[in-house]
Design a protein around this nucleic acid. Sequence first.
RNA 1: GCGGAAGUAGCUCAAUUGGUAGAGCUCUAGCCUUCCAAGCUAGAGGUUGCGGGUUCGAGACCCGUCUUCCGCUCCA
Length: 513
Amino acid sequence: MSQKPEDFFKNVISHCKEYGYIFPSSEIYDGLSAVYDYGQYGAELKKNIREYWWRAMVQMHENIVGIDAAIFMHPTTWKASGHVDAFNDPLIDNKDSKKRYRADVLIEEHVVKIEDKINKEVEKAAKRFENFDEAMFRSTNARVKEYQDKIDSINNRFKNAMDKGDLAEVKQIIVDCEIVCPISGSRNWTDVRQFNLMFSTSMGSVAEEGNTIYLRPETAQGIFVNFLNVQKTGRMKIPFGIAQTGKAFRNEIVARQFIFRMREFEQMEMQFFVRPGTEMEWYEYWKKARLKWHQSLGLGNEKYKYHDHLKLAHYANAACDIEFAFPFGFKELEGIHSRTDFDLKQHEQFSGKKLQYFDPELNQNYVPYVVETSVGLDRLFLAILSAGLKEEELEGGDKRTVLNLPPALAPIKAAILPLVKKDGLPELAEKIMKELMFDHIVTYDEKDTVGRRYRRQDAIGTPYCITVDHDSLNDNSVTIRERDTMKQERVKISELARILDEKVSLKSLLKQL
RNA sequence: GCGGAAGUAGCUCAAUUGGUAGAGCUCUAGCCUUCCAAGCUAGAGGUUGCGGGUUCGAGACCCGUCUUCCGCUCCA
């Protein structure tokens, strides 16, 4: 299909809506920006992806266990993790250049410029006088003092403004200092606005001071604060991992690209605790293991690539992304980070509790190092859906829309279809459906011609259609039609449950790992 | 936040210079019985995103507002 990427992406979005995968949130009220609801099929697909991840991590690793920590956490958690300080930026726009700046950075840069002027004065004076006493010069020279007073006054004003959260004052500082935009050179600024990454709410029915709590911006911290609980009660020996899936919330400045960047999203994280000094081995191990997991889905190995981070976050000593070829380009799907002992150390410091492990082999205590794997469930969903959606040209110029989902992840595993709606075929089909229902989500459809029903199932990604025809009444056989090849195979009704199970169980995926 | 585009049936879109909102698909009920969509009959579905204004008359023109999409800015 010679389709433009934007158009294809639009198709993905409308297909999601039209076939019950994803709806805009609160749509009857015109929607809520960057929030989406998973529909009847979306919820199943998402659940299946989560299930596959969980089994691959928890079930297939003796030394990994899973937890389900709360979204609400003690507010100090986020001071310790660095989220409170690091993601609380006052931003300002220049209306002419359309550039956005951090207001604090603009002011800092301005202060640096004044400092440069002082230094120049000092240099000049140093050349002029012999036996130059720099300290004396700095404290007595009128011009230098003037500059220094300016700096102190700006710094004071800024500190006061930030402490009080007075953003109008922050803007006034920028205006008073006559700070110009480096690009447009103009002083045409918008108001300063505070962008806080974290959503806050209040605990307790009465709004009082000091009871502000945050909706977690990552699930990882729920694992770190439970490190000792799990290690002790599970008698875990290093190296070991703790996995968790769950919602996280980030107040993105601009959330875009459908479910790729949402304000409410779901993460699947695993924190792997290792002996200090071995973290790079494990980092490499998990990089490979996670890529292999993604590739097992069969979306095409060429759709993945590593992207190593050169600029590292405050807590990491190595980091890379597994990127996926989304319709809008290669973008991060999963992050693998070597987080060092940063988080546990921070929590030790803020909680006053020892978060250490006694290593019997070394006969010593230490704070473990952590290798994190963190994948966006919604992004994975989008990856699978956009890789799967195809407009096929069939022989004879016929077209069909097919959603090529990995069978083990498909929402509906099979549709049971009577060839015609009479002669006892519907009854037999329903009987088959009721039997298969015990193991899988299956559906029944008798409306329209069978070819049309096949196409309907293709569009929602059902991997198998089981067709009951007139012969079925005599030979106790039915045909299984495969979604991707459209080939049919005749099988015994008594064998159906086993055959279907073989084709759609997660086991087939897990065995590839 | 800035710039651009767009909001009409569940979906895709029409509606002449302003003159009674329509089609296809989908859906529902029935007919037909056919292994790869679009046979027949009937039916349902709309305060044209919302609020004002101009006009005898607004889906269309004007103002405001909301939402979505694209680009820029931010992004652990």
